[in-house]
Nucleic acid binder design. Structure first.
Lengths: 218, 218
DNA sequence: AGCTTTAGTGATAACCTCTAACTAGATCGT
DNA sequence: ACGATCTAGTTAGAGGTTATCACTAAAGCT
C-alpha cells in the first residue's frame, strides 16, 4: 500500500487548503511585499469569505511566521543541494544569489527590515545553524594562511554559534564575511540601489566572491 | 532685522505643525517600524481628529516619502560633518555606524526592504550622490596599489555614477565595497541576526573596516 | 468692512484584522 | 445504521485603518 501522507481525508483536505493559502500569500508578497499581505484578499480569491482562514492560521502574524519558516527551509535546502559533491564556497554563493533573485521578497522576509516587536520562532534558528554548518564546511575547505587578525582572536573565544564545528577561527571569520559581504551586495541589488548607476551587480557580486575565495588577507 | 525663516505667521504655524507631525511619525517608526505608522494615531496624539493631517501631507505615502528624504539628508549631513578636516575612510565608517545605531529604523527606511511598487523621489538620488562624493574623496585618499581586477575594468567603462569624480577605478571599487560590506555587517546587526551568536558586531565591523582601509588586494 | 484663503470638523465609504454565535455536513463510536 | 461529536464554513459585528467630501469658523489680505 502507498505511504499515506495524510491519514484521514479530512487532514488531507486541510493540508491542501493550507498549502493553497500559503501559495496565494507568496504571490501576494512577491507582488506587493509582506506588509501588504491581506487575509481577506486571500480568502476572497479562494472563494470563501473572511474569517474562514482563521480555521487554518491563528492570524496574520501566524501565517507570516509560517512563511518565514518555509523561506528558511527553502534556503537551507538550496544550500544543501549546492553542497552536494563537495562543499564549494563559490557554488554556495551562486546558489544563494540564484535563490535570492528567484523571489526577492522571500529573501527580505528573512534578511530584510525587522519589525521591532517580532521574534522569529525558535525552530528557525535551528535551520539557520544548519545553513551555517554547510557554509562552515565550505570555508574550512579553503586554504587559510593569512595572519591571524584581532577578530580571529575574538572568535577563538566566541565560537559557540559554530555549534561544535571544528573549523579554525580563520574559517569562522571567512564564513562570517561570506555572509555579511554577499548579503551586502545582494540586499542592495534586490532593493534596487544599483539601478541607475549603470554598474552590473552580478560583476560586483563576482568580485566580492573572488576576494572571499581568493587571497586570505582581506 | 532678523532673517525671517517663515514670512507669514500662517506659514510659520504650518511649518511647526508639519515638524510636529514628522517628529511623532519618527517616534512611532522608531518603536513600531514604518509599516505600523498610523496617521490617525498621530492626529489623535496631537489633539486633532483624523483627516486634519491631510492639510499637511497628501497621505501616508507622502509623509513616509518626506521622512525618507529627511533620512537621506541626515545621513549626508553626518557624512559631511565626519569628513571635515580630511576625508578619512575610518571616520566615515564610524560616523555611518553611529548614525545607524542611533535610529535603526531610520537606517532601514533607506536601506531596508523595499516595497515593490514604490519609487524614491528624484531628489533623494541627488543627496545619495552627495554622500557618494564624500565617500569617493575618502577612497581616493587611500593608497591603492593592488592589481586591477576584472571588476575594475568594468568600472572604467561604467563610472557615470561617480558623477565626474576623478578617482581611479580602483578607488571607485573601494567605495563600492565600503558601501556594500559595511552595509552587510550593519544591516545584519541592526536586524538582530547576531544576537544569540555571542559575537560582538562592533568587532566584526572593525575587522571589515580594517580590511577596507588596509591591504588593497581584497 | 468684506472677501478670500485656510485649518479643522464630522460623516461616510471602503478596506483591514479578529471574535462570537450559529449552521450544515462529515466523521466516529457504538 | 444511528446518534453524538467534531469541524469547516457562514453571517454579524466591534474596532482599527486610509482617504474623500461638505461644511464651519477663523485668520489674513485688500
Amino acid at each position: 500500500m502507498t505511504e499515506q501522507v495524510a491519514k484521514t481525508p479530512r487532514a488531507r483536505y486541510r493540508a491542501q487548503v493550507c498549502a493553497e493559502i500559503k501559495q496565494r500569500a507568496w504571490e501576494q508578497i512577491a507582488t506587493a511585499g509582506a506588509s501588504a499581505l491581506s487575509l481577506n484578499a486571500i480568502a476572497k480569491q479562494m472563494g470563501m469569505s473572511g474569517p474562514a482562514l482563521y480555521r487554518y492560521f491563528d492570524g496574520r502574524d501566524e501565517l507570516i511566521t509560517d512563511l518565514v519558516r518555509d523561506a528558511y527551509r527553502s534556503l537551507a535546502d538550496t544550500f544543501r543541494a549546492a553542497s552536494q559533491g563537495g562543499a564549494d564556497v563559490t557554488a554556495l554563493a551562486h546558489a544563494l544569489r540564484g535563490w535570492a533573485l528567484q523571489d526577492p521578497q522571500r529573501y527580505f522576509l528573512i534578511y530584510g527590515t525587522p519589525v521591532p516587536g517580532y521574534r522569529a520562532p525558535d525552530d528557525t534558528t535551528a535551520i539557520s545553524s544548519e545553513i551555517m554548518a554547510t557554509l562552515l564546511d565550505a570555508c574550512a575547505a579553503l586554504p587559510l594562511d593569512g595572519a591571524a587578525t584581532p577578530f580571529d582572536a575574538h572568535l577563538e573565544d566566541h565560537r559557540d554559534w559554530a555549534d561544535g564545528h571544528p573549523a579554525p577561527p580563520a574559517a569562522l571569520h571567512r564564513a562570517l564575511t561570506f555572509w555579511t559581504r554577499l548579503h551586502g551586495v545582494l540586499s542592495l541589488e534586490l532593493a534596487g540601489h544599483f539601478t541607475g548607476m549603470g554598474i552590473d551587480p552580478e560583476q560586483l557580486f563576482a568580485a566580492e566572491l573572488a576576494a572571499l575565495a581568493g587571497a586570505p588577507a582581506n
